[in-house]
Design a protein around this nucleic acid. Sequence first.
DNA 1: AAAGTTCTCAACCGCCGTTCA
DNA 2: GTGAACGGCGGTTGAGAACTT
Length: 330
Amino acid sequence: MGRPPCCDKVGVKKGPWTPEEDIILVSYIQEHGPGNWRSVPTHTGLRRCSKSCRLRWTNYLRPGIKRGNFTQHEEKMILHLQALLGNRWAAIASYLPERTDNDIKNYWNTHLKKKLKKMNDSCDSTINNGLDIKDLSSSNKNTILHPSSTNKGQWERRLQTDINMAKQALCDALSLDKPQNSTHFSIPDLGYGPSSSSSSTTTTTSNTNPYPSGVYASSAENIARLLQNFMKDTPKSSLPSPVAATCRAITTADSSPSTTEGGGEGFDQSLFSFNSVDEAEDKPKLIDHDINGLITQGSLSLFETWLFDEQSHDVVINNNMPLEGQEGLF
DNA sequence: AAAGTTCTCAACCGCCGTTCA
DNA sequence: GTGAACGGCGGTTGAGAACTT
C-alpha cells in the first residue's frame, strides 16, 4: 500500500492567499521550519493543499526574496544562463538566490522573450555580445537532447563550441559588471521601510544567516507590514498564541527605527532564522545550498573560477554544478 | 471619463522522479 | 517489489493593474 493522501481534495481552498493565511503559514514555519509540507495543512488548519503551501512559501513568503525590477546584471545573467541551460528556471534561479524560479520565468516570458524577439527581428542572425542566444539555446537543446540526430563527432564538436561560446558570453556579462562590484546583490527601492532608498547594497560577510541581511530584512519587512495591517483588524485574543506572539514580535520590531544600512537591522532576524538542517532541507538540491553559500559569503568565487579557469572544471562539477551531461567535455 | 487593450505576476495544473508504507 | 503520495519543476492561466485610444 502507498502512503495516505496529503490533503483532502474536497474542501481545499484555491485562489489568492489572504494575509491571515500568510501569517498562519509563516508562524508555523517559524516554529517548525520549512519542509514536511504534507503536515502543514493539517497542523495549521489551513484549507490549502501542501503543494500550495510550499509554493506560497518558496515564491512569496520565504526570507531573502528580492522583489521588484530586475537589475541589468540580473537580466544579463538570466539571458546568458537561459542560453546555456534552456528553460531550466530552477537551475537559473540557483545563480540568483534572491529571485524565485517563478519570478525569473515570469520575467523571461514577459520581458526578455520580447527583447530577444525584437533583437532577432531587427537583425536576423546578429550576434549579441558574441553570442547568438536564440541559436545557442535551440542548438543546445537539440544537441544535448538529441545527439543521435547527427554523428557523434560532429555533435561533440558542436556541443563543445556551444559551451565555450556560452561560457565566454557569461564571462563577458559578469566581467562587464565587475566595476559595479558584481559580487554584491543590490536591492531596489521597493518603497518599503524607512530607509529603503539607502539599502542598495548588502555587504554581510560575517553574518551567519545565509541570506544577506538587507535582503532578508526587506522580505521580513514585507511580512511585518502585512502583519501590521492584519493586527489592526484582528483582535489578538482570536489568534492562536504562537501566531499572536509572532505578530507582536514582528510588528514591534518593525516599528523600531532602523539604524543601519539595509533598513532591517532593527528587525529580530531570529524570528526567521532556521537551523542549517532546516535550511538545507528547504533547498531542493545541494547546488542551491552551495551557490547560496558562495554568493552570500560575498563572492561568486567558485562560479567565476569555473568561468575563468578551464582547469578548475573538475572541482566545480564535483560540486554539482548543474551541467549534466557535459562532464568530460572540457 | 469610459471603454478597450495590454501587461504583470501569483497561483494553478500536470508531469516526472523520488520516497515511503 | 509495488503502487500511491510527495516534492519539485516548467508551462499556462486569469484577475487585476496599467496603459492607450
